[in-house]
Simulated scan of single mutants.
Amino acid sequence: MAVTDEAIEKIKGMIVSGALRPGDRLPRESELAARLGLSRNSLREAVRALSLIRILDVRQGDGTYVTSLDPQLLLAALGFVVDFHRDDTALEFLAVRRLLEPAATALAASRITEAELDELDARLDALGDDPSAGELAAADLEFHRTVVRAGGNTVLSSLLDGLSGPATRDRIWHGLAAEGTARRALDEHRAILAALRDRDAEAARSWATVHVAGAERWLRSAPARAALG
């Protein structure tokens, strides 16, 4: 095991064991390095790595703290990673989303409030008859984020947020708009919303499956369309 990896594992061990808790300040660098049997350089590298993935928060002039370890914080980088993948791998992320999002949407059917439903309705109405691809992508993100969060499972919500890479989502909506099929996708939003208003979990699950599968189908056929173009 590399020295930096060993340092990361030792700090992780302190957090997992409860020796360091969310919000705790780490001991001084010299003290922590001695306690863990590490060089100060390897400890410094480990702290830098753990700060990049939001486990630690380095505050200049104040010290280094364990973050809240909230799932939304820890999974925030996933969407950034998703956008770096090629179409074939991005399809795998979408396939995972197709497995999880319908279940999350069904969960929301019994928990989403009337106020949240009214807000979703208003956002769809606000798009008007000819929204831009950028507006469609932003509206799509907020629609699904609101529905999934209404289900009340923060881990599931954060994971799905991460699986929806913004660049991939933006590309799909630009493609749908260019092909004139964006309206169909918005109609699927309406169908999901209607099922949620009816508190029909299975209908909400089905429409969410159809909707995500449509994005998956578009991305799968993208290389062929590019070749024809």
Score class of each variant (00 low, 15 high):
F93C: 07
E29T: 14
L99T: 06
S110L: 15
A138R: 00
A137G: 01
E188A: 01
G175I: 03
T67V: 02
S110K: 15
E9Q: 10
L156M: 12
R217Q: 04
E202Q: 12
G128T: 04
W218V: 01
S110N: 15
L99A: 12
H174A: 13
L186G: 07
I55V: 08
G175A: 04
G37F: 09
F80G: 09
S17I: 08
S132T: 07
T105G: 04
V212W: 07
E216R: 07
R97W: 00
V16T: 08
P71S: 06
R225F: 01
T209P: 02
E101T: 12
G152T: 09
D24M: 11
L186I: 06
F93I: 04
W173V: 00
T105S: 07
G152L: 04
R197T: 02
G128F: 06
L38S: 06
R25P: 04
L91Q: 12
T89G: 13
A133V: 00
A104F: 00
D130I: 06
V210C: 08
L26C: 01
G18T: 14
R145V: 05
L176N: 08
A49F: 00
F93K: 04
A106L: 01
T209D: 05
A49L: 02
A49M: 02
L50Q: 05
A185R: 08
L56Y: 01
L228F: 11
A137N: 02
D88S: 15
A95T: 07
E119M: 11
G165C: 05
A33Y: 00
R44H: 10
G13V: 07
E45Q: 09
A115T: 06
S164H: 09
H144C: 11
K10Y: 13
R21T: 14
G13D: 10
A106H: 02
A115F: 12
L73P: 10
D62L: 15
R184G: 05
R184S: 06
T181S: 09
L196Q: 09
G229P: 09
L78Q: 01
G165A: 07
D62C: 14
D118V: 07
S17W: 01
A34F: 00
E92H: 14
L56A: 04
L38Y: 12
A122Q: 15
L26R: 05
E216V: 03
A103Y: 02
E45W: 01
S39W: 02
L107H: 10
R149V: 01
S157M: 08
L32D: 03
D70M: 06
V212I: 14
L50W: 02
K12R: 14
I112Y: 10
D140Q: 10
G151C: 05
S164E: 11
L78H: 00
A46S: 08
T4P: 11
E101P: 13
G134C: 00
L99I: 03
T4R: 13
D87T: 13
S157Y: 12
L26Q: 04
V16A: 06
T168W: 05
L38P: 11
E202D: 14
L156I: 12
R54T: 09
Y65D: 13
S68W: 12
V210L: 06
A2I: 13
D87H: 11
A195L: 03
G63F: 15
L91P: 08
V147A: 11
